[in-house]
């Protein structure tokens, strides 16, 4: 039994199944982050005094640049497959994973310094929402990295059998990765700058 439109697009909708699926998943992710952002707004507008400039802007700017760069390498990894260049794809997907890991490393350094300074989530609502938002985001990075490592490892065997389907899969994880970066673009100014 074969399920149709796993690889080829359905003519009247112009989509293959996984592409619609990943977009729907991202729609629900938007609502998840919208819930957290709304909480941030409500807590901040309801507070007597909101702490500002508590976080290292320099490190976070570096992290922003790293994530944007990883989005670019992600696109390159996908484009390489479309151009049938397997070696190039491996390099760029590997780079994306590496950049993601560097992001997490910097994030952990930040956490460690806050914890050392006694700035725990229980200190005030600012640190509460800071830890929650960035940790939920970091978990999304971890999830993306696991999937990419799978495509670097055992998942890559699909390329030999069904290259088109493998390309679709890289496109899907790419869409997810861009979304995770995009959320960081909101989180960065909300917590670090404003």
């Amino acid at each position: 039994m074969q399920i149709p439109y796993t690889v080829e697009t359905r003519p009247d909708t112009g989509l293959y199944n996984a592409k619609l699926g990943i977009w729907l998943f991202l729609a629900s992710e938007v609502m998840l982050f919208a819930g957290l952002f709304s909480s941030y707004i409500l807590l901040r507008t309801g507070s007597v005094a909101w702490p500002r400039h508590m976080l290292p802007v320099g490190l976070a700017t570096l992290n922003t640049a790293i994530l944007i760069a990883s989005s670019m390498t992600m696109v390159m990894a996908w484009a390489a497959l479309r151009m049938n260049n397997w070696a190039r794809h491996r390099v760029f997907l590997g780079l994306t994973v590496l950049l993601g890991l560097v992001f997490l490393g910097i994030k952990l350094t930040e956490y460690r310094e806050h914890i050392a300074a006694g700035e725990l989530p229980s200190r005030d609502t600012f640190f509460a929402i800071y830890y929650t938002l960035t940790a939920v985001h970091a978990l999304h990075i971890v999830g993306g990295l696991i999937v990419m490592l799978y495509f670097l490892g055992p998942g890559s065997r699909l390329w030999a059998q069904r290259p088109e389907q493998f390309t679709n899969r890289i496109e899907s994880i790419g869409l997810y990765w861009h979304f995770v970066d995009f959320m960081w673009i909101f989180i960065f100014p909300l917590l670090y700058l404003l």
Partner: peptide
């Protein structure tokens, strides 16, 4: 798809309140 995630967000916040000592 669209209405459940905000409750998931709320669930995470309440879990933080109970486990990590936040005051959301």
């Amino acid at each position: 798809l669209l209405a459940f995630p905000p409750l998931e967000a709320a669930g995470v916040l309440q879990l933080m309140d109970r486990v990590a000592g936040t005051s959301f």
